[in-house]
Write a protein that binds this DNA or RNA. Structure first.
Length: 348
DNA sequence: AATTCGGGGGT
DNA sequence: ACCCCAGAATT
């Protein structure tokens, strides 16, 4: 009979995208991919997955990795604590769980970087256990299907969706059910302009029937973004470029950058930048406006005390460091650009 | 419950 | 510009 579960799993069996971590043996590909996929679209995660999997093809090699190597492979993807937690979890699995992922929800949730979603994803996909996943895609599909008006920013709403799915997730193929729901949300039941014509649920979907797909799911507006203004100070001598490593906690933990001077306003930034172009970089909660100047005396830099360490780096060493995106944009504008584009392999 | 964690892509 | 993304950890 045509139930919610049978409709989407049958749809999935036909429309399943081939992905590098799909239909391969063992839990390790699922484990690795789920860290990469947190708040990250499939298309963006794929090249990172291929690079990391090629370098660390199993849990043992990953557990033995240097953190700096993981971070470098992660460079440009964002949310860098995912990479540190991935390594920590791999070490715990290797040493505390005999190299096997713990096939129980309670134990899985103790691993760093694994929360409700990731635990359910790994246990259902790789271990065939009936835990429903509730990510942004699933939330959207179910809220529309039921025409539920609740705010999806509220934690209660996620709980309500999980309870709904817990009762209908098939015990035979819980992983396919979960993947089907997410894939439907990503490719058909999109946030804007959903392709209801291609949707296996369109006959039963209440938001479709009531023409509510533009207003459901409802999401309350986020808090306004903070604006910040920064000037990067670039110093170069015969030994190389002056770079600094950020603190291990907070924004962009332990990432490298040109020493930064924090400013108070866009006006001040435009004044000090001296005609140099103003760049913009947006984070989840910050809009950053910044530029850079060339300095000739590094003793003018009291802000160096804000960093873990500093180093004079030749061009090759510079490109080997985990430099975050805002300053990669600066490097593109310097005469490093030729060497940089040759070494940068993560974009396309 | 709210805030803090990136960066790319769609509209 | 604004929104979203196979969310987790911290406060």
């Amino acid at each position: 009979m045509d139930t919610f579960a049978s409709l989407i799993t049958e749809w999935f069996s036909v429309n399943k995208r081939p992905l590098p971590w799909r239909d391969v043996a063992g839990w390790y590909p699922v484990f690795l991919s789920e860290y990469l996929l947190q708040q990250t679209q499939v298309r963006q995660a794929i090249p990172y997955y291929l690079n990391i999997f090629a370098r660390f093809p199993d849990i043992s090699t990953l557990a033995a990795a240097d953190e700096a190597d993981i971070i470098r492979l992660w460079r440009g993807l964002g949310y860098y604590n995912r990479a540190r937690n991935l390594l920590k979890a791999a070490q715990i699995i290797e040493s505390g769980f005999n190299g096997q992922f713990p096939p129980y929800l309670k134990e899985a949730l103790t691993l760093p970087g694994i929360g409700d979603y990731t635990a359910a994803a790994i246990l259902s996909i790789a271990f065939n256990q009936p835990y429903p996943v509730v990510d942004g895609n699933v939330l959207r599909v179910v809220m529309r299907f039921m025409t539920w008006p609740e705010d999806i920013r509220q934690g209660q709403t996620k709980l309500k969706v999980r309870r709904f799915l817990q009762d209908i997730i098939p015990v035979e193929k819980p992983g396919d059910f979960n993947e089907a729901l997410m894939e439907l949300g990503a490719t058909v039941c999109k946030p804007k302009n959903p392709s209801c014509i291609r949707c296996p649920l369109s006959g039963l979907c209440l938001a479709k029937k009531q023409d509510q797909t533009t207003v459901i799911p409802f999401k309350s507006p986020p808090p306004p973004k903070q604006k910040r203004f920064q000037l990067a100070c670039i110093y170069r001598n015969s030994k190389g470029w002056l770079l600094a490593q950020r603190p291990a906690t907070g924004l962009l933990p332990a990432m490298w950058e040109f020493p930064l001077r924090e400013l108070g306003s866009l006006h001040e930034l435009e004044h000090l930048a001296g005609g140099q172009r103003i760049l913009k970089h947006s984070y989840s909660h910050i809009d950053l406006y910044y530029s850079y100047i060339i300095i000739h005396d590094p003793s003018d830099l009291p802000e160096l005390k804000n960093y873990q360490q500093t180093a004079m780096l030749g061009t090759e060493e510079l490109l080997d460091k985990a430099i975050h995106k805002a300053h990669l944009k600066i490097i593109e504008q310097l005469d490093l650009i030729y060497c940089f584009s040759a070494a940068e392999n993560t974009k396309n």
